[in-house]
Design a protein around this nucleic acid. Structure first.
Lengths: 202, 202
DNA sequence: TGCAAAATGTGAGGAATCCTCGTATTTGTC
DNA sequence: GACAAATACGAGGATTCCTCACATTTTGCA
């Protein structure tokens, strides 16, 4: 992940492995006991290192949560980029976008801890901007694609639409995994219809 | 507000006034210093009471934040109910809904502290369900209206659509007030178009 | 290899915060 | 005024984040 958040650059392989172990254990703790139960002391203990060592790898708790969230973001960004790459014409857009959302939803359903990691992000004032930042990145991916397909469109309008659609996609996923299964599916379906209409009609 | 959250039922007028003072001061602190800076000690001091007295009115910090959020919710629910009440036919829906969203957005813009109060809710694991609960309530209001206007529609589909539209409305507002002014306006406009299309076409 | 310097590891404890609980004060009733 | 009930108080217990002075390991070099 990026380096500004790491107290010490992981120069040795052992360090990188240790950082990985820390994040894996953090994910486990969150999965087992919820996003609010992440304690630096327990994280150190599970990883088999002391508190002091933990703080040599991460300057503070925020950095751990941020690293977790960035792991998730990398995955979802890859999923989105891959899905968008298959869009070569406006005709493809509807089916490709629907497939993308399905994949995205499947990821959320398969790893419920993603939602808890996001809760941990929300709980941290310093990290709450990550949500918008991530929406912006994903929105930019979509906007690029749309502009290539619709050169005549108003760029600003396309930017706004793309940002909104991606942001609300995130919001829909989190809502969908918060409710019982069939209802969540219906919500995702409704989102797909809504988003696709917005994207495919001027 | 409701009583389960109050440690002591405000039987006397003085008590109710004091609860009001506590919430007003809490809002001020959040407005001035951000949602993460709400400290029970400072809240007591500003209100001119001791920590112990503060905890006689609210069992814990969550309860204070919850009360703040419920105040906001009451306002927004009233705004939504009022807006929906003017919808008497499917033809009205588009203009009435647009007006409703404009009013809602104006409230958010006028009182930025609303967003910070919501951040405080997000920061509290025990309160995070409030978001979905509120979306459900607002979704139900909208669903009722839609069912009255479209008796032929699939009730489950209407429920899902209404819930999604209201939840994403909240998400749009929070995104819109998080970005610079003209961009936020464009996002709200895009949301309005998207939601109205979803609501007015089968 | 042997040794000094640099890197890394350690955990007691400082600091901030939430909340409790025993005591003090005020209010209400006769 | 005297008693009881309600309310107010704030020192301090409990939890958690994080620091820092010191211990240990690894690295670089003769």
């Amino acid at each position: 992940m990026n380096d500004t958040q790491m107290r010490r650059a992981p120069s040795q392989k052992r360090s990188r492995e240790r950082v990985d172990a820390i994040l894996t254990n953090a994910t486990q703790i969150i999965a087992e006991t919820g996003s609010d139960a992440l304690r630096m002391s327990e994280l150190a203990q599970r990883t088999g290192i002391s508190i002091g060592s933990l703080y040599q790898y991460f300057p503070d708790k925020s950095a751990v949560v941020r690293a977790l969230a960035e792991r998730c973001n990398e995955d979802s960004r890859a999923c989105i980029a891959e899905g968008l790459a298959t869009v070569t014409s406006m005709d493809d857009l509807a089916t490709a976008f629907a497939a993308l959302i399905d994949t995205y939803y499947a990821i959320f359903l398969g790893e419920p801890v993603i939602r808890d990691i996001w809760s941990a992000v929300q709980a941290d004032g310093a990290l709450r901007v990550m949500e918008v930042e991530e929406s912006r990145r994903n929105g930019a991916l979509l906007a690029d694609r749309l502009k290539a397909l619709q050169p005549a469109g108003d760029p600003q309008k396309i930017d706004a639409t793309a940002l909104l659609v991606m942001h609300l996609g995130e919001a829909t996923m989190r809502l969908a995994v918060s409710v019982a299964r069939p209802e969540g599916d219906a919500l995702v379906e409704a989102y797909k219809r809504m988003a696709i209409r917005q994207l495919t009609t001027p």
